[in-house]
Structure formats: structure tokens, C-alpha cells
């Protein structure tokens, strides 16, 4: 199932609704890399609230999305990591170093806005 990507002002929101196959993840990566340029976005929010597992491939893909977006001028925030998922990731040694995380979509949007305000002001 492809991931819907919504555009909200200068921010792209990728809202993951169900467990993703590796293929879906790669498609999401390519899609976002393309859209960041097309919409001249300044931020990307990846919402993983619905996921109850984040394996190493998913983590790696999210990391590469973040770095790609950064190179094209957009900041990425991963939001909605569940407590169990966070614990499992730590146990498995998976990290999202250098990538912003936030509690939920609202927090993530607030964080991007704060960043934008910093940059402008």
C-alpha cells in the first residue's frame, strides 16, 4: 500500500497508515525526494504512529529520506514513535541520529515552525 503524502503549506506530511513492505518504503523515499523539490518544501514530517514495529531497513530508509531531504533544503521530523517501538529500537541498537523526533504530528509541525522562525528571524 503506497503511503499518502499531504502538502500543508511548505511542509510535506507522509502519514503511514499500515505496516509497510520494503518496496513501499523505497517508493516513499523516491516519492518524497521528488516532491521536496517540486513543491519547494522546507519540512517533511513522517508520521509512524500506526507502526508497531520499525526494523533496520525501515530505520535506514527513514534516515536516507532525512539526509536526501536535507540536501534538497528540507528538515525532516519523525513523529509518533510508540513507547514499545522506541524501546525495541534501542534494544536492537537502531538509532535515528541527527534526525529530529517529536511526540506526534502537532509537535512535529510546531518544531518545524520554530525552526523556520529561527531561520527567518
Amino acid at each position: 500500500m503506497p503511503v499518502p503524502v499531504l502538502k500543508q503549506g511548505s511542509v510535506l506530511i507522509a502519514s503511514i497508515q499500515a505496516a509497510l513492505s520494503d518496496r513501499d518504503l523505497v517508493e516513499l523515499r523516491d516519492d518524497l525526494a521528488d516532491r521536496v523539490g517540486r513543491h519547494r518544501s522546507r519540512g517533511v514530517v513522517i508520521d509512524v504512529t500506526a507502526l508497531d514495529v520499525l526494523d533496520s531497513f525501515a530505520t535506514r530508509t527513514i534516515r536516507s529520506i532525512a539526509y536526501t531531504a536535507k540536501l534538497r533544503g528540507a528538515e525532516t521530523v519523525v513523529v509518533g514513535i510508540q513507547p514499545e517501538v522506541a524501546f525495541a529500537m534501542v534494544q536492537l541498537g537502531l538509532s535515528l541520529d541527527g534526525i529530529e523526533t517529536a511526540l506526534d504530528l502537532e509537535e512535529g509541525m510546531a518544531l518545524l515552525q520554530a525552526r523556520e522562525a529561527e531561520r527567518v528571524g
Partner: peptide, 9 residues
Amino acid sequence: TVTAAKLMG
């Protein structure tokens, strides 16, 4: 513990 908390923002 710190890393897990960070993942939750």
C-alpha cells in the same frame, strides 16, 4: 533510556 526518550521527541 535516554535514546528511547529521544525517539519519542
